[in-house]
Simulated scan of single mutants.
Amino acid sequence: MRSGADVTSLEVGGVRARALSAASHILATRGPEKMSLRAIAESAGIGTTSIYHYFANKDELLLNLALMGFRDLRRQIVRFQTSPEYDNAMQASARAFFDFAETHPALFSLMFSERLMARHEALREAEYDTFLAYQAAVEADERMPAEHRANAAFALWALGRGIAAIMSSYPDGKLPPDVAERIFAGASYLINHPD
């Protein structure tokens, strides 16, 4: 038999996780404008009051989605670095970044939201932790002089943030195919020819 503390922690995780899962689905399928705490509660099959127990407001829920996004992106960057499919860790990390942007455009835009970044230090820290995983791959790349690797990592990350800003300027968060092709082809060239 479980103790009361065990049951409570499972319930907390369950309700919170269901709310975040529903919010993630709404964000991906309908966009942030259609996301309300009521819609999330209905989608998750929980009461609105339950959501307010775990999230003070919609902004806090969006923050938590963005934090989860950075954790997922960081894991993807690290996982891709060990994939034999790529010639080097820098290329693998960039592919992880761009794959995440392409497959989760609304979440990607949310993660790099200027409004959320400006308000929440935790989000800036999550981005920095994710950047460090990317920076490690760039600094391990011996195709460029060691003294330029750290600066190259920052510049390439800034390129990724710029792509996020461009994506968020489109209503559905997706780049038109011709724009996406040009951006990703140019970024790929820069990453694969660093000398």
Rank of each mutant, 00 (worst) to 15 (best):
A140C: 08
R115L: 12
Q135G: 01
E102P: 09
D99G: 04
S93M: 00
D99N: 09
A94T: 13
E121S: 10
H120K: 13
E125Q: 14
P105T: 05
L110E: 07
L116A: 04
M117W: 15
R119P: 14
L132W: 08
A140W: 13
L110W: 00
A118E: 14
F100R: 05
E139K: 06
Q135Y: 06
D129S: 08
Q135D: 12
D99M: 02
D129F: 04
R124S: 07
E125L: 05
S109M: 06
V138Q: 11
R119G: 15
E102L: 04
L132R: 14
A96D: 01
F97G: 00
A136E: 14
A92G: 13
T130M: 00
E127V: 04
F97H: 05
L107K: 06
L116G: 12
A94P: 08
D141L: 04
A122S: 15
F98D: 11
Q135N: 12
L123S: 10
F112G: 08
S93P: 04
A96Q: 07
R95N: 14
F97E: 01
L123H: 12
E127D: 10
E114C: 11
A140L: 08
A133R: 06
A96E: 05
A92Y: 10
E142P: 09
H104L: 01
D129V: 02
A122H: 10
V138L: 03
A101P: 02
L110H: 04
L123E: 13
F100M: 01
M117S: 15
M111H: 05
A106R: 07
F131K: 03
S113F: 01
R124W: 10
A126L: 01
A94C: 14
T103L: 02
F98C: 08
E102N: 13
A94E: 13
Q135V: 03
E142T: 11
E125R: 14
D141I: 00
A122V: 03
T103P: 06
P105C: 02
Y134I: 00
Y128I: 04
S109E: 13
L132S: 07
R119Y: 12
F100V: 00
M111E: 11
R119N: 15
L132H: 11
H104Q: 14
F131C: 01
V138G: 06
V138Y: 05
